[in-house]
């Protein structure tokens, strides 16, 4: 890639970054405005001048201003930087495939811990993530298996007996 092309990519990621800010901070400003209105209905107190809603409203007001400020700073950047070349979103998603993969598995893991129990859910999560991140040969799969067993069934037993903390037992009872 020559210098011109690389500066072109940098400028277009600039645009993507600016739009990401505008969308996120715009959405946050709206959310905070909604919460600000909602906090108005929190009860006043009989003993103090400030009710339950005053402090949150103070913070929310500052947050709305800060988010609008960030949006205002990003608009010129978004307008002045060149358009993204076609397919760059797909490229970006592909480059982050491992992070999204791990996040997806982690999401599934957190949701299944209460149902399947800590042992089964952790074992499946540990095996799948290690496979995803590169444990593909027999030897590394064996290491992965040992680690998965230690940090699911082993940790469960350790917490049960040493720290007397029961992690969710789930379907194994």
């Amino acid at each position: 890639m020559n210098a011109k092309a690389s500066s072109q990519t940098a400028r277009s990621t600039d645009r993507a970054n600016a739009w990401a800010h505008i969308v996120l901070n715009g959405a946050l400003a709206l959310l905070f405005a909604y919460l600000f209105l909602r906090a108005g209905s929190l009860p006043e107190s009989a003993w103090e001048p400030l009710g339950a809603g005053t402090f949150p409203r103070l913070i929310l007001a500052v947050l709305i201003l800060l988010n609008l400020g960030i949006v205002a700073k990003q608009v010129p950047r978004a307008v002045h930087s060149p358009r993204l070349p076609a397919g760059s979103t797909r490229q970006w998603l592909w480059r982050h495939r491992l992070a999204f993969g791990v996040l997806g598995l982690f999401g599934a893991y957190t949701l299944t811990v209460p149902l399947l129990g800590f042992r089964l859910a952790s074992f499946a999560f540990l095996m799948l993530v290690q496979y995803l991140l590169g444990a593909r040969r027999w030897r590394s799969l064996l290491i992965a298996l040992a680690i998965a067993l230690t940090f699911s069934f082993g940790i469960y037993a350790l917490f049960q007996s040493v720290f007397s903390i029961s992690l969710p037992s789930g379907i194994l009872g």
């Binding site: 957190t110 540990l126 993530v129 290690q130 991140l133 444990a135 992965a144 680690i147 940090f151 940790i155």
Partner: peptide, 13 residues
């Protein structure tokens, strides 16, 4: 590939 999943499990604990 080992650190990331193991620490994530520790996070849940």
């Amino acid at each position: 590939s080992i650190i990331v999943p193991v620490v994530l499990v520790c996070c849940v604990i």
